[in-house]
Amino acid sequence: QLLDSMPQEFIELTQQIVHYAEEKLKTKLNSGVYFTLMDHLNFAVERYKKNINITNRVYWEIKNYYTEEFEAGNYALQLINETLGIQLPKEEAANIAFHLINALGEETESKNGMKYAKMIGSIVNLVRYTLNMKLDQENIHYSRFITHVKFFVERFYADKLLADQENELFEQIANLYPQAMDVA
């Protein structure tokens, strides 16, 4: 029924966006993304035409912690704006990225991108403010840190935290970096 009521341009846009995202992210997205993204795009354009703007409360987190997905969302936003001759707000890139994040992984896995982004943001803020330091987002060490935090959050929500098998390494890090260990 959704397909029957959907304008052809949204079907084609969705196919182009998903194809681009799969190449950019080097992974296959859940097939459900076609319906959720297509439906989202349709309503986003309807909201635009009615001059209704809904803010994305995790725009910054998605932009900074899911950079590849956000870049795919930016590509999608430009494609939509050019194809339809409209100007959706920049926040729409994060909304599209959110759908891509939720479509990552196996079919049976239900990811919650907003929940992940909020927790990642909370952890980064905790580190930033506890250590009273500005984090350079262009630095390779920052990127590595975000990657580790993302994997931690995924394991946390999947209830697959790593077992304490590396006691020697843990003790060594605790002795060498006591302030970092306190923050952790």
Rank of each mutant, 00 (worst) to 15 (best):
M38L: 08
M38E: 07
M38Q: 10
M38P: 02
D39R: 07
H40T: 11
L41N: 04
L41V: 03
N42T: 13
N42Y: 14
N42A: 09
N42S: 12
N42E: 11
F43P: 00
F43C: 02
A44M: 06
A44R: 08
A44V: 09
V45C: 05
V45R: 06
E46G: 07
R47A: 01
K49E: 10
K49N: 10
K49C: 00
K49M: 02
K50Y: 02
K50Q: 12
N51P: 00
I52V: 15
I52D: 12
N53E: 14
N53H: 13
N53V: 13
N53Q: 08
N53W: 04
I54E: 05
I54F: 09
I54W: 00
I54G: 00
T55W: 06
T55I: 12
T55A: 12
T55N: 13
T55D: 11
T55F: 11
T55R: 11
N56I: 08
N56W: 00
R57C: 03
R57W: 04
V58N: 06
W60Y: 14
W60K: 15
W60T: 13
W60S: 11
W60L: 14
W60H: 15
E61P: 02
E61R: 10
E61C: 11
E61I: 01
I62P: 08
Y65D: 01
Y66A: 09
Y66C: 09
Y66T: 05
Y66Q: 10
Y66F: 15
T67Q: 12
T67N: 07
E68G: 06
E68L: 13
E69M: 03
E69K: 00
E69V: 04
E69F: 02
E69T: 03
F70H: 12
E71K: 13
A72D: 03
A72Y: 04
N74T: 02
A76P: 07
A76F: 05
L77W: 05
L77N: 10
L77S: 08
Q78Y: 04
Q78W: 02
Q78I: 10
Q78E: 10
L79Y: 03
L79T: 08
I80V: 15
I80M: 01
N81H: 07
N81G: 11
N81C: 10
E82D: 15
E82K: 12
T83D: 04
L84Y: 04
L84R: 08
L84C: 10
G85R: 10
I86C: 03
I86G: 02
I86W: 01
I86Y: 07
Q87T: 14
Q87V: 15
Q87C: 08
P89K: 14
P89Q: 13
K90P: 15
K90T: 15
E91K: 11
E92I: 12
E92G: 08
A93K: 05
A93L: 08
A94L: 02
A94P: 09
A94F: 05
A94N: 04
A94V: 07
N95F: 11
N95V: 09
I96M: 00
A97H: 09
A97W: 09
A97D: 10
A97E: 08
F98S: 06
F98Q: 05
F98M: 11
H99M: 07
L100I: 06
L100P: 02
I101Q: 05
N102E: 05
A103D: 03
A103L: 01
A103M: 02
L104M: 14
L104H: 05
L104K: 15
G105P: 00
